[in-house]
């Protein structure tokens, strides 16, 4: 569905992603894990057109995304749930969600938009309760749900999530990841960028491990979860613990 070939991204003269290739298959959760500054978010921004300075190839359902600006990418059926949620604080929850359907404004689309809105409010009942409240008064977890709901409003085929677990309590993270699994089972493809490697790999089908702009490892998520190199680097175990386990 999404195919990236030899992608190089630049911030001025600095190359943040150094020739990454990956592919995302339909109705799967693909996760990109890696430490801070390894280029995960940069990759997402390149896909969305937020960062226009990249070389290589990004194709979505056979269409090259080169030169697309963000609205054009949204129209292709790709939706980003940005890092740090970025809901619009003074605007009500309901209006935040409606903003997600900004690209569908024609009269005949109104009914469909309202239907999606209902569906999303059913998926996140808490948002229904808080529909009239300004988004800034929501808790972190609720804001994350709102951000995901907003991303879903445009009927994406591919949902990009940038660290949805950031700054949230483990219980909330679990809840959000459960919802991601539901979405995948409904046929939405998900590209999940995470630092919380353990949680991400548990729900993902396939994973890529990033390090300083390169993919250093890839494989089915269950294998990565067992991989010692991943354990060392991202699951919080150092060599000492390894050897303790082994010997």
């Amino acid at each position: 569905m999404l195919r990236i070939k030899n992608l190089k991204c630049f911030y001025g003269r600095i190359m943040a992603v150094k020739g990454v290739s990956l592919s995302v298959k339909k109705s799967q959760i693909i996760t990109l894990i890696g430490a801070n500054g390894s280029g995960k978010s940069t990759l997402l921004e390149s896909i969305c057109g937020l960062l226009p300075d990249w070389k290589g190839e990004i194709t979505f359902e056979g269409v090259s995304l080169k030169g697309f600006d963000p609205p054009a990418v949204v129209k292709q059926g790709i939706s980003l749930v940005p890092e740090g949620r970025l809901v619009f604080p003074p605007i009500s929850v309901l209006d935040n969600l409606k903003l997600g359907a900004y690209t569908m404004y024609r009269k005949r689309q109104h009914a469909a938009v309202n239907q999606t809105l209902e569906k999303i409010l059913d998926l996140f009942p808490i948002l229904k309760q808080r529909a009239k409240q300004p988004a800034g008064t929501l808790s972190g977890g609720e804001q994350q749900m709102l951000a995901i709901g907003r991303g879903l409003m445009s009927h994406p085929k591919l949902l990009l999530l940038d660290e949805p677990s950031m700054g949230l309590a483990p219980l909330i993270v679990e809840k959000i990841f459960q919802i991601l699994e539901t979405l995948r089972n409904d046929g939405i493809t998900i590209l999940l960028v995470e630092q919380n490697a353990q949680a991400a790999l548990q729900i993902a089908d396939f994973g890529y491990v990033f390090e300083t702009g390169n993919v250093v490892l890839q494989g089915p998520a269950s294998e990565l979860l067992e991989d010692q190199e991943v354990k060392r680097a991202y699951l919080g175990k150092d060599y000492g613990e390894f050897y303790d386990d082994k010997y």
Binding site: C48, P70, P71, S79, P82, L86, G100, T103
Partner: peptide, 8 residues
């Protein structure tokens, strides 16, 4: 950026 990400 957030506005652009929802397609504005």
């Amino acid at each position: 950026n957030a506005a652009a990400a929802v397609g504005v």
